[in-house]
Design a protein around this nucleic acid. Structure first.
Length: 150
DNA sequence: GCCAACGTTGGC
DNA sequence: GCCAACGTTGGC
């Protein structure tokens, strides 16, 4: 099984939002590397951390599960959407997304500060300098180390 | 193919 | 709100 980390701004879509709707297409990814993770590497049943970014206390707040294989992100064809891409061809859509399902909230937020302070996570994509990816891979070792902090 | 300009991300 | 870092765009 592969593990992932999904960033979301809680003012846009929080772990509580996912808990309420149970399942949600992860639309709006407009970065090729992040898209490729969803399209090429994610498998139904993979687990991911739900990370709150751009907020007072950035950190990991919950766990989600990949619920569907990637399919076309419908928002790329919605002219009124912030994520509209007029250059995407409906016959060959550029952007894809998986559906994610709520798994559980963590008992507490594992903060970015805490993660940065650790020296046992190895090369962790989240704390790499200048990292801006909204979806990133987490190794099995990192996954269990982080979960043990809960 | 280079690279400057620009837009976005996201911590602070 | 600032700004460092980085991806993308487009002129050449």
């Amino acid at each position: 099984m592969n593990h992932w980390l999904f960033k979301s701004e809680p003012e846009e879509f929080s772990i509580d939002d996912l808990k309420r709707v149970r399942k949600e297409p992860w639309t709006g990814v407009r970065n090729y590397q992040a898209r490729n993770f969803m399209r090429d590497q994610m498998r139904v049943g993979d687990l991911g951390f739900f990370y709150h970014s751009n907020c007072p206390v950035p950190g990991i707040v919950g766990i989600l599960r990949i619920a569907t294989p990637a399919s076309a992100d419908r928002l790329q064809f919605v002219p009124d959407s912030d994520y509209f891409d007029p250059t995407s061809d409906p016959a060959n859509p550029r952007w894809a997304c998986v559906d994610v399902a709520f798994e559980r909230k963590l008992a507490r937020t594992i903060t970015l500060d805490e993660l940065k302070a650790r020296d046992d996570l190895g090369d962790f994509a989240l704390t790499r300098r200048g990292n801006r990816l909204s979806i990133l891979p987490v190794t099995t070792a990192q996954w269990s180390t982080i979960l043990n902090l809960e």
